[in-house]
Amino acid sequence: MNVRPPTLPSSLLVATLVWVLLAAPLSAWAHDSPEHVVEALTEQMKQTGVTAELLYRRATELRVLRRYDEAAADLQRALQLNPDHLDARAALGRVYLSQGKGAAALVTLDDALGQAGVGDQASSLLMIRAEIRWALGATNEALADCERAMEEGRIPLDWYLMRSHFQLGLGRTREAVQGLRDGFDRTGSFVLETEWIEAMIDDRQWVQALEAIEPQLQASKWKSAWLVRRARARLGQGHESAAKADLQQALAEMDSRLSSEHPDLMMLADRGLAHMLMGDREMAMQDLERARQLGGDTWLLGRLEKALGQDGLAAGQGKDAHVGK
């Protein structure tokens, strides 16, 4: 599945990827809210002087408050005071990404990787750079960074997901299936198991996907997500009537569960996909636009965007089949 790189600023997924670099213990005043910590750090700098470490810590809190411009200013100054402050450099890269400054983010991460050694720290930096590269449309390079990061050490669950996104974006669906299966085997994560099933559908492994979907469907109380997946696989096999029945049941359930004010974005994406698979492009577009308004991005909406041709592909390329009207 080819997925269009997101419009900057991209997913805040990167916000968690180098948490390891920000886990430096804070002193007693970190007990307070971020605003208080910012005030306390500012006061401390007035009293004891400005240091790179204090600026870095203040920037950490400013990021939590989404005051990215101030955070960037602090981190830039911190690096002037101490160019070897790797945590600050990595954090600055993340801030640039949040500000939509992809090119600056990439340069900053390149510098950070030049400073870093090996191990968990370097792996985390590689994952940040992978997301930046993805945001800039360099998916091959993003995947390369991701695979390097995942070569050794502890592999967080999110990394398996990110790798599969890159692989699907490049149309390397078979690798995505294998990678997610590997992750599921290692961790037992239900999310990875689910994504593995989705990837099998993307890879047109209809029979295998249906075999995996069936027990999940039976075991679930709320079935809409699994019904949509089964419908996709059934459509792939050409079983339109059965797929239609699944989609109708799924839509009825989702309509009863979705809050009109602020819906569950994953369910909204599923409903949009169900509409599209039913051939109702207009309703699908409404759901897609609503999801985008509420902050949904390509990580979440990729399959729906592809189905609607909103993923940058030429019309007719790579679209799923849908129920004929």
């Binding site: 997913s11 805040l12 997924l13 239900f190 569950d264 369910m267 949904g296 991005d297």
Partner: peptide, 12 residues
């Protein structure tokens, strides 16, 4: 975020 593994697991 909804794209994260935790939210996806929660929904499932």
């Amino acid at each position: 975020q909804p794209t994260g593994a935790m939210a996806r697991w929660l929904k499932a």
